[in-house]
Design a protein around this nucleic acid. Structure first.
Lengths: 346, 346
DNA sequence: CGGCTTAATGTAAGCGCTTGCATTGAGGAC
DNA sequence: GTCCTCAATGCAAGCGCTTACATTAAGCCG
């Protein structure tokens, strides 16, 4: 009943040669005589033989499998990057082993060990923030790890991504240039998320630069989601005096904020401006369209795959790669209401 | 330099026991003396030992890995389902091997073989449409396959999902009840996609039921995407007489159609109604909100995982599972403009 | 106190494949 | 004819792990 798949041995027996010859026939046909090759190939076809990758992986020490641990695939920015990552990996003959941490540090730690023991030859990780013990573990196991979605040459780990901090500074400069002075932010929880942290720091940088006191930046943290973004926005609207602009840590939070604003009867950008980050498709679907920062997720995924494959194949290059973001100025950002905005520090 | 990971042997040497004892200590600790266990565990921690999955898989004949082949993770409905699938799998000690077909049949065929030879013990596939040779291959290899995102008890393959056809019929009934007679549809390419196909058939069913001629259903096919949805919508608006409602095969196409409508100066639903399918988050973010069909993607993913794991562990249940969809009537659907809509078939 | 059971551990045989080395035989060079 | 080379093939040693079976040392019985 349980049909065991034919093995190299079976093929060898049928073709009346040794297993070594069959193996060579499949991997280095040049070393095998023509006559023999034909015989072996016939047996292979005949038996419907397909090599057992587990055995091959064991003996060659290579699994041609790369692991990725992301917070969740439900976040479009990860889905997009991982999709490109997987495609590029496939082009190089690698397979993707995937796990998700749900943004939980302890879960991620388990996943790292799990994927490694499952034979992942290299790992794609999101963000630098992580107990150093994990990096030590990976090093000891000889598993290259690439940190993505961030770029930070100061970190010992190789990374590919963009500078969250300066990208947000760029956006905040625009906001300030428009005349906004009372700035609020909705951020993803920052405790275990250096991306979120750096984006906030980016806003502070721009404020300082413009002579505003970063301490006046009103920050509310909200987990990823439309609803949570909406709630956070509602909270911010109770502040006295009310901010004239709400800068969100990502487009999804911004979309939630936008919906809440509409629901509260506030006009965007007439009464209040809102900005996002990531430039997801939904940024151009909402009304008004979201001012945001475009991030090259696909390219990041693609290049991350290349870096890891190169590392595995040649032990090559290991310099971090910085990708450029691009400001997308759209309808959701405009100058603050008449004469308002400078009331605070100005 | 290339630090080889510690092996069972290394642990055994350090703990001064045999490899068998170490193995037992890790797998069946009850069989090992307390003192010894402590010694071994210390060595394990000390060396940062992590079992070599390839060897374990080879000898046990089990990889505890399940493969999934989806069109693309960029489509939120798949990302969402797969996320739940992966989480549930992890809870049962299985790992997810993932591949994407980009909606291409030939690519998918390659992926099936690839994942199997990579040690996937079971496969999650999307939709029934597929060369039967693939099902035969899987059967011969003894790999259970679960077809998801559809439910069709008439197919030999086990499936978990919903009835695309009747779900769409339900929506179309509402549309017709509102007074629409000139109906158009934007569908994903149907050639290799039974889901898309069945949704169109569902519309036809409702038309027939209402005494409308299904041949008058104006169908334009468009690949997944906002832009393509917008283009398809523009095409439909050139028809004479113009449809009073455009039913889209999914929310993303609908969002594109909606944007295009706005751009063309058409009021939705005043001048024209638009419907979607899936009930993605974006359905409630656009203005007006999208009338659509809610699909329990997460539940589907979760249950798919359970079915496969049960099958692998116990060779259990193999009945297809039908999940229920739910109509979401929202702002984008309303009766056709005054006196319009019945002009065609009377 | 000899023989039995039992718990704890070791021994070693593979799992299916690759690959370094040995073997064989034929063709050339001298 | 002898020796060497070289292409074609076989032999057998693992890769790191699990596990059936063997071994050892107690612990217990009568």
């Amino acid at each position: 009943m349980v049909q065991t798949a034919p093995t190299l041995q079976d093929v060898a027996r049928v073709a009346n040669v040794s297993t070594a010859t069959v193996s060579r026939c499949l991997n280095t046909p040049a070393l095998v005589g023509e006559e023999t090759r034909r015989k072996v190939m016939a047996a292979v076809t005949d038996l419907g033989y397909s090599p057992n990758f587990r055995a091959r992986a064991l003996v060659s020490g290579r699994s041609h499998t790369i692991g990725a641990i992301i917070p969740t695939m439900e976040n479009a920015i990860f889905a997009r990057g991982i999709q490109a990552f997987q495609e590029e990996l496939a082009d190089h003959g690698f397979t993707l082993l995937i796990a998700s941490s749900s943004y939980r540090e302890d879960v991620e730690e388990g996943q790292i060990r799990h994927l490694v023991s499952r034979g992942a030859e290299a790992l794609l990780l999101i963000g630098h923030h992580r107990d150093p013990v994990n990096y030590r573990f990976l090093e000891r196991q000889g598993i290259p790890a690439l940190v993505a979605w961030v770029y930070d040459p100061d970190q010992p780990q190789m990374s590919i991504g963009f500078d969250n901090q300066s990208a947000m500074t760029g956006l905040a400069r625009e906001v300030i240039a428009m005349g906004h002075r009372r700035i609020a932010a909705i951020s993803a929880p920052r405790a275990a998320n250096d991306r979120a942290r750096n984006r906030i720091v980016g806003i502070c940088d721009a404020m300082e630069e413009a002579g505003l006191d970063p301490a006046t930046l009103d920050i509310v943290e909200a987990p990823y989601g439309i609803e949570t973004g909406a709630e956070a926005f509602a909270t911010l609207m109770t502040r006295e005096p009310r901010p004239t602009v709400v800068m969100c840590g990502n487009d999804v939070l911004a979309a939630g904020a936008l919906r809440q604003a509409t629901q509260m009867g506030l006009r965007v950008p007439g009464d209040i401006s809102i900005t996002g980050f990531d430039d997801l498709e939904l940024a151009t679907l909402v009304e008004p369209q979201l001012t945001t920062v475009h991030v090259p997720h696909r390219e990041m995924g693609r290049r991350a795959a290349r870096v890891l494959v190169a590392q595995l194949d040649g032990g090559a290059a290991d310099a971090s790669i910085e990708l450029q973001t691009r400001l997308c100025l759209r309808g959701s950002l405009a100058p603050p209401p008449d004469g308002d905005g400078g009331a605070l520090g100005g």
